[in-house]
Amino acid sequence: MLYLLQLSLESRAGFDRVIELMATGPIKLILWLILSGLLYHLIAGVKHLLMDWGMGESREGALRGAQVTLLLTAIAVVLAWGMIW
């Protein structure tokens, strides 16, 4: 990721190269996997922070929190797929 960023900022040629790379299937797939992992981590992390505030610590609350997290993640992952492909 850092390499792509560096390349894209270095020069116009580098930028075009990154655009080229990002059009290929494998790179898109890797980006989608990384983005999905990040989105899940972000959503689960927000749930974690909420629990630090004392929300959703009961058994029922934890169950609902987990369900909401998975649901939101599924939606985000599909949107990410749409955004990349």
Partner: peptide
């Protein structure tokens, strides 16, 4: 970890 998480969430 919590403090950096908030910053990183905002940046993301």
């Amino acid at each position: 970890q919590r403090f950096s998480a908030v910053i990183l969430a905002a940046y993301t």
